[in-house]
């Protein structure tokens, strides 16, 4: 029994390893003195990836999709800006505070939204996201109305100024690593198994005594914590936030990134965030063209590779190595197949 456990742990650690290696390589990038433009793109990609790890717990594990996720990021960002302005609270204290604010907002949205069930949840989150953008726009001086808020505050760590691009980049990579490990820990905990049970068969899960409603809200709250932290990083990186950054379309892009990367694998959010951020650079597209490409990619991925790009590649590799793919495991979580 104990041997089994240890083997399980080893197996699941092995699934974390590729991500850690990739992140370590990414952390080495500044050695090649990249351009400031590259670093800025990478930082925004990393900030998205943190939110995507939260979204992957919600969508990949629990099977519910939030179309208002940018709103949760926005709550974090505005919390950081307002705390800095009114209370002089800096970056590090803003992190837990903003995470809490986003989690509470997720709970407020989640309780009524999840009550109305699967089909409507998506629309409810979308509506709440839109409402938040309207409220922020009409919030007068407190939220800075349509122009938004400035956030001016140094980010220091052990006395070192982190606002320098390279340092901020490294800090974001560190946060992404924490997010990846946290999401991995959730996936491989008994809590993660509970969430997957809900995803696969809600009624069966309920009949086993799992409180489906509470766990769904819980997963949404957890994804809110990720979003809140990503919001703080975004606010301090950009120095200025406005309602349009957190309305419906940023939410669609977040969902798109998690879909393109594949929500169920630990590599998915990282791949999705990086691909969507760098694809226009690589293909030399203007913003309009690149959005068309994203849309086409999203449709293609859904029609051809329902597990996302990485999920599709993993499956193709597995099929190539083992001769023929196992039929029963096709629809299963790849992480579970490994266990």
């Amino acid at each position: 029994m104990k041997e089994d456990r240890r083997a399980d742990l080893f197996e699941s650690l092995r699934s974390l390893l590729p991500v850690l290696v990739i992140l370590a390589l990414i952390a080495l990038v500044p050695l090649f003195s990249p351009s400031n433009r590259f670093l800025s793109l990478a930082i925004s990609a990393g900030i998205n990836v943190i939110a995507l790890y939260g979204l992957s717990v919600l969508f990949g594990q629990t099977g519910i999709l939030s179309m208002g996720h940018a709103a949760l990021v926005g709550v974090g960002a505005y919390a950081a800006a307002i705390l800095a302005r009114d209370f002089g609270i800096g970056f590090w204290l803003a992190l837990p505070a903003a995470a809490l604010a986003s989690a509470v907002f997720a709970m407020i949205v989640g309780i009524p939204s999840l009550r109305v069930g699967g089909h409507h949840f998506v629309i409810m989150t979308f509506a709440f996201g839109q409402l938040l953008a309207i409220v922020l726009t009409n919030g007068g001086d407190y939220t800075g109305a349509a122009t938004g808020l400035d956030i001016a505050g140094p980010v220091t760590l052990f006395g070192a100024d982190m606002t320098d691009l390279t340092r901020y980049y490294l800090m974001v990579v560190a946060f992404v690593t924490v997010a990846a490990v946290a999401s991995w820990a959730i996936i491989h905990s008994s809590y993660g198994r509970t969430l997957r049970a809900i995803r696969e068969n809600e009624k069966l899960a309920a009949s086993l005594g799992i409180n489906v409603g509470r766990h769904k809200i819980g997963a949404f709250v957890v994804s809110g914590i990720f979003a809140g932290i990503s919001g703080v990083l975004l606010a301090y990186f950009l120095g200025h936030i406005s309602p349009s950054q957190f309305s419906s379309f940023p939410s669609i892009y977040l969902a798109l990134m998690v879909m393109i990367g594949g929500a169920r694998l630990i590599e998915g959010p990282l791949a999705g965030g990086i691909l969507v951020a760098f694809l226009p650079e690589v293909l030399n597209l203007d913003p309009v063209q690149s959005r068309i490409v994203y849309g086409v990619c999203l449709i293609a991925v859904i029609m051809l590779l329902p597990d996302g790009l990485i999920g599709g590649i993993v499956r193709a590799l597995r099929a190539a190595f083992s001769g023929k793919p196992k039929q029963e495991t096709e629809d299963c979580d790849a992480a579970e197949v490994r266990q």
């Binding site: 999709l65 179309m67 089909h119 998506v122 669609i252 969902a255 798109l256 879909m259 309009v288 063209q289 959005r291 068309i292 994203y294 849309g295 086409v296 990619c297 999203l298 449709i299 859904i302 029609m303 329902p306």
Partner: peptide, 30 residues
């Protein structure tokens, strides 16, 4: 061309429609 293939999984149909939003809007902008 698209939605007929998502009838078994309506959520996929929904996601396809999100992709279409982005594509149609920006084709018009283009």
């Amino acid at each position: 061309g698209l939605f007929r293939f998502t009838l078994e999984r309506p959520t996929n149909g929904f996601i396809v429609s999100l992709g279409l939003i982005v594509v149609l809007q920006h084709v018009v902008v283009l």
